[in-house]
Amino acid sequence: MGLIRLQNISRRYQMGTETIHALRDVSLEIERGEYVAIMGPSGSGKSTLMNLIGCLDTPTDGAFELNGNKVSEMDDNELAEIRNREIGFVFQSFNLLPRSSALHNVELPLIYSGMNAEERRKVALDTLENVGLTDRMHHKPNEMSGGQRQRVAIARALVNKPSIILADEPTGNLDTRTGVEIMALFADLSRKGNTLIVVTHEEDVAKHARRILRIRDGQIASDEKV
């Protein structure tokens, strides 16, 4: 059974009097340990799909199961718990807390999972070490380079040992060389058995993945293994 199972998922938004069909009848299964790229032009519904998989949103119709949890039937509190436990987000604009140190940013998910301060610090330090940022742990985001910030964000995504790491344009705000470094880090994470889903519109980024999903007009246009 797949780690992620989407069955006949639809998502509609009401914009004034108009109904927008962001996703139409999407079915999809992703196994544990896969490295998937989701591609598509803007407005194709790939962000909506990412929000659904990231448990930030629930589908209008259809069933979504994540690691055996029926996410499509959950309320707000349960979704927050699932996000905390099962999902690590990496964003294009890093989304770090600007006034907090790298260490505190990485600790953040652990605060909400109720870990005590001492253990939290230890786990966060270990994770920062994994992304090679031990020497930057007391720096604030504005004291770090883009690549370093993204690595802090990746450490934050990894710290709760989630089932999936969900990256939205992770290299979008980085120069090419740093982008390559980050993609190498992702490749490394994938080799260690993490499930990665990267949303991107760059072919260069997508080619690192071993499966490419292309979305067009709210439907899966193609699904190829590389």
Binding site: G54, A80, E81, N84, R85, F89, N95, L97, Y112, N160
Partner: peptide
């Protein structure tokens, strides 16, 4: 934005 980040990493309302 901070609130969004906190919510994304698992903060409840």
């Amino acid at each position: 934005r901070e609130i969004g980040i906190r919510r994304a990493v698992g903060a409840k309302k």
